Computed example of a mutant assay.
Amino acid sequence: MNILMDELPYTVTIAGHTVPINTDYRTGIYFEQCLADETLDDDEKLNEILLLYFGEGIGPLITDWETVTEAINAVMWFYRCGADESVLAASESTNSGKDPPFSYEYDGGYIYSAFVEAYHIDLTEKRLHWWQFRALFLALPEDVEFSKIIGYRTMEIPAKMSKEKKRFYQRMKKIHKLPDPPDRVRLEKDLEAILAKGGDISQLIK
């Protein structure tokens, strides 16, 4: 899908039914946090994801594992902003199109200030659609502090750089190092593995 040509989605199809999906950008962040939460078992993660995006109203549609898989796949399609999986796979194989090292939780203040500075959007007041948020997030200009921090984290310090500059960039890397860098590709693969394994739907939507 093309955000310039197509209408933003507010529903998905599950078991032949058109189902409203929670589009708020915060839901996408909660989704990532849920996947990374090691205190939740597989059923708890699936249950939390379904409730996050569809609420308890999805319960009557969850009649078998095939429906669970269809619902979670709809979530993944939405989370990926409608990107085709083959395109994503090609991007991953060339190391392009991947998110840089950041954490919505750890970098929350920097991301908030970046949106205010670049777009005059107060994320505490604005209810952006996830696809809008992601498009703006990926296009943040280089001169905002958050983009500079990403640059510090990802840059390779050349051997020929002056000692003074080396010390500066090494210090910046240390200051802005993520305590536990999220691997979003791995988290998605973990979710796919949970679906492939199957489970007891009686444990879902409780």
Rank of each mutant, 00 (worst) to 15 (best):
T63V: 15
L8I: 11
D107C: 14
F102D: 09
M1Q: 13
I149A: 08
A90S: 08
R26A: 08
S202Y: 00
I175K: 08
G59Y: 05
R184M: 13
I62A: 06
T154M: 15
R167E: 13
A139F: 06
T18I: 13
V75Y: 06
G151Y: 07
N2C: 09
K206M: 06
A135D: 13
P100S: 15
E92N: 13
T39M: 12
L195K: 04
A90E: 11
L35W: 04
S202I: 00
D64L: 04
K165F: 03
I111T: 05
E145C: 04
E85P: 02
G151K: 11
E188V: 03
E32V: 12
S91C: 10
Q132Y: 00
S91A: 05
E56C: 11
A118N: 02
P9Y: 09
A139I: 02
A159V: 09
E85F: 01
E7W: 00
V144M: 00
R171Y: 10
M5L: 15
L40E: 06
R184P: 09
F102S: 08
H129G: 03
E32Q: 07
D41G: 00
E38G: 11
T69Q: 13
T63G: 13
A89C: 02
P158L: 10
S113V: 01
Y53E: 04
S91T: 01
E56T: 13
L8W: 06
I21W: 07
F102P: 09
E142A: 11
E7L: 05
E7I: 04
W65T: 07
G16A: 08
D41R: 12
Y25Q: 09
K174T: 12
F137W: 15
N95F: 08
K160G: 08
D24S: 10
E164Q: 15
M172S: 02
K173F: 05
W65H: 07
I194H: 03
Y53P: 03
E7V: 02
L136S: 02
E188Y: 08
Y10M: 06
T39F: 11
A74R: 08
L50D: 06
N22D: 05
D122N: 11
M5H: 14
K163H: 14
L4Q: 08
P179S: 00
R134K: 13
N95L: 12
L51W: 05
E188M: 14
L123G: 03
W77S: 07
S91Y: 04
N22Y: 02
D43H: 15
K166R: 14
L138M: 07
G198E: 09
T67G: 06
L40H: 03
K197L: 10
V12R: 03
Q33A: 12
D43A: 13
